[in-house]
Amino acid sequence: MQRKLDAKLICSIFAAGLMSFSGVLIETAGNVTFPVLMNDFHVNMATVQWMTTGYLLVASIIMPLSAYLKRNFSSRKLFVTAATLFVCGLVIDAVANQFIFLVLGRVIQGAGAGIAIPLMFNIILERTPLDKIGLLMGIGTMITAVAPALGPTFGGLVVNTLGWRYIFIFIIPVMIISLLMGIASINDESKKIAHTQLDTAGFLSIALTFIGFIFAFSNLSTILQKPLMFILPLAVGVICLIIFIKHSLNTATPLINIRVFKNTKFTQGITAYFIFQVNTLGLSFILPNYV
């Protein structure tokens, strides 16, 4: 396929980027709503955190599948699936009358975001002219980096003027626009589908790793009262991570090729980005609730 930076490519990147931006925006905007949700649904802070934890858990489990999904499905099908899941999750959250439904909506959105964020970068890497990849990768990264900064402000304005449900209601038309743009611009149905086999052992081990770590750090605030609620999930996460690394190094078709970490510059870059994201997302949770 000839690579050229035309209107369709720009539109497809913008459509996927808009979905990724919306996913991260809602995640950080939702942190501002915690005190209001605790009052409306009569739940404590540990419980209300599951609105974010459930979202991140599902998104982190789906993202490692991006390489497998890219090989076995067209970008168009993946985009439509992600957008549909996201819109369904938004509608559920907008009308939720019980906290469990609010978490369910966030979990469904997490599945959509887990597909959408890697998809945006896959479109850039596969279809962009080689001399423009750096520029568009930077723009794509900026999209996901700007959203956490805007989220608390957006959430605070909406919650204080209209109510927390409008955080989800306002994003629904944005996602519909993104879906229509993607349908019109993403067209790779002629792509040869590989039909590769899923690395089940790798997927299960990395999924349990994320589950263990997320459960552990979700219970970090109660470590003095309930130390086992932190230690046991952390141990599960560490053990499963070791299993995943050993498995990935000894299989011909790993879910994630971790050998890239042998490249020092890559490892340094990804470490810096990881620290930046932890700081940004952590502060976007702590500051609004503290204020």
Rank of each mutant, 00 (worst) to 15 (best):
F21T: 14
Q197P: 03
D131I: 12
I100W: 11
L157R: 01
P64I: 13
V159L: 00
F217Q: 09
S205V: 14
I108E: 00
P35L: 02
I139H: 02
D188F: 05
A67P: 04
V291D: 05
W164E: 02
K265I: 07
S66K: 06
G155W: 03
S221Q: 07
C88E: 04
R3M: 09
A184I: 14
I13P: 05
V91L: 10
W50E: 10
F213W: 04
M137I: 11
A96K: 10
A235M: 10
D199Y: 03
R165F: 01
I100N: 09
I231F: 09
N279D: 05
P288T: 06
A94E: 11
G89P: 07
A201R: 01
A201G: 13
F285I: 14
V95E: 12
I270Y: 02
I286S: 13
V174R: 06
W50I: 12
T128N: 10
C11T: 15
I139W: 00
V146D: 09
T84F: 00
I206K: 07
N289E: 07
P64L: 13
R3Y: 01
L65V: 12
Q49A: 04
N31C: 01
L57A: 12
A235P: 08
A83H: 00
T33K: 02
A59C: 11
S22E: 08
Y55N: 08
G269H: 06
A116Y: 01
Q49K: 09
I243W: 01
S20A: 15
G114H: 10
A16W: 01
V103G: 03
M45K: 10
S66R: 06
F99L: 10
A59R: 05
L287W: 08
G23V: 08
K132C: 10
G112L: 06
F210I: 15
G151I: 10
G151E: 09
T222G: 02
S248Q: 08
F203Y: 06
Q268E: 03
P148G: 14
L9E: 09
G212N: 08
I108A: 00
T253L: 14
T153G: 14
I171V: 14
T253D: 15
A184Y: 14
G163V: 06
V48K: 00
F170K: 13
L208N: 15
L220F: 06
T53I: 12
I243Q: 04
N44R: 08
F121C: 13
G110L: 08
V158Y: 00
V238L: 10
R71L: 06
T33H: 03
V43G: 01
N122L: 14
A201N: 04
S190C: 03
F215R: 05
V236R: 03
L249Y: 11
G282V: 12
F121V: 15
I124C: 13
F121D: 15
Q2C: 04
K191P: 05
I275A: 08
G105V: 01
L56Y: 01
V36C: 00
I193C: 13
Y166T: 02
M45S: 11
T280C: 12
S190Q: 08
V103C: 00
S284V: 13
